[in-house]
Computed example of a mutant assay.
Amino acid sequence: MRVEIWSDIACPWCYVGKARFEKALAAFPHRDEVEVVHRSFELDPGRAQGDVEPVLTMLTRKYGMSEAQAQAGEENLGAQAAAEGLEYRTRGRDHGNTFDLHRLLHFAKERGRQDELLQLLYRANFAEERSLFTEGDERLVELAAEAGLDAGAARAVLADPAAYADDVRADEREAARLGANGVPFFVLDRAYGVSGAQPAEVFAQALTRAWDARPPLAHVDAGDAGACGPDGCAVPRS
């Protein structure tokens, strides 16, 4: 069974939702037969590269709330994250364009290190004092190397604006086709969708439902053919 997760590194609920989903998956009896694929979704695709501002400033400007309301929201998110065993800085974080982060995640996917890099990017954005958006490509190269990727190859990806750009856009078009207008968005076997950072219990129910709904294997009978089994291999007779 395949689970696809559309998310953005700038999305705090994606950070929390990933932990809740993984808690459910860890307890799922068929967890070793579940493939998890992370897909790209930009919450702020129109933001220019290098346009970085404090999270509280972004929240007050974008949603028309007071700074006190924005800070209260951050405190609530911090409590939600802590309940999942996650670190979360409720003050002093930055917000910026995430397109290059998504490009790098597609590079990591090709190398089998996508989940490792995604978790490091989340940690860097939500838990660490250093800004993920103000230190340039070398900060991202550093995280890619920590995830087990070749630093030089990661640097080359970031230096080429076209590298994996089509993959990011394809993920975003697919999200729109599936009706996702926010993240996190979980799609199980292209049959069930779960929106938001639901409790682990909801994800557990969704996993069970999707697993049980899988159609049985249909056999095509095209007559006798050579095959091997526990008793040996059939030998053609002339």
Rank of each mutant, 00 (worst) to 15 (best):
R93V: 00
R31W: 00
G226L: 14
A83T: 06
V3N: 04
G152I: 13
S195D: 04
C11P: 02
R89P: 11
L86P: 14
K62M: 05
R155A: 15
A48H: 08
A210C: 14
N125F: 03
Q114W: 11
F133G: 10
D221W: 13
V34D: 02
A154S: 14
I9P: 07
F133H: 09
A170T: 12
Q119N: 14
L56A: 12
E35R: 10
S40D: 05
L207D: 00
R123G: 01
L120T: 06
F186Y: 12
G182K: 04
D221S: 14
R190C: 06
G78H: 13
L77W: 08
T57N: 04
R113W: 02
Y122E: 03
V168H: 11
A218L: 15
L140M: 12
E110Y: 01
L25A: 00
G73P: 15
E53P: 02
L217A: 14
N181M: 10
N97C: 03
L101I: 09
Y15F: 11
P215D: 13
D221T: 10
R214Y: 01
A162H: 11
V37R: 08
D32P: 02
L25D: 00
P54A: 15
A197L: 09
A68P: 03
H38T: 03
Y63P: 02
L118D: 04
R61E: 09
S7T: 01
P199S: 02
G17P: 00
V220A: 14
F133T: 07
L101V: 06
G136Q: 05
E22N: 07
G85W: 01
Y192L: 12
E33V: 01
K18G: 01
A68N: 06
A127M: 10
L77A: 12
V157P: 05
L121Y: 12
E74L: 15
H219T: 06
L43E: 11
E67T: 09
E110Q: 11
E35K: 10
D212H: 12
R209D: 05
V183P: 00
L140C: 11
C228N: 04
Q114T: 11
V37L: 07
A82M: 04
G152T: 11
A24K: 00
L188F: 07
G229S: 09
A176Q: 10
G64T: 03
A213S: 15
L120R: 13
A144T: 04
V157S: 01
V36P: 05
Q49H: 11
A154Y: 08
L59N: 04
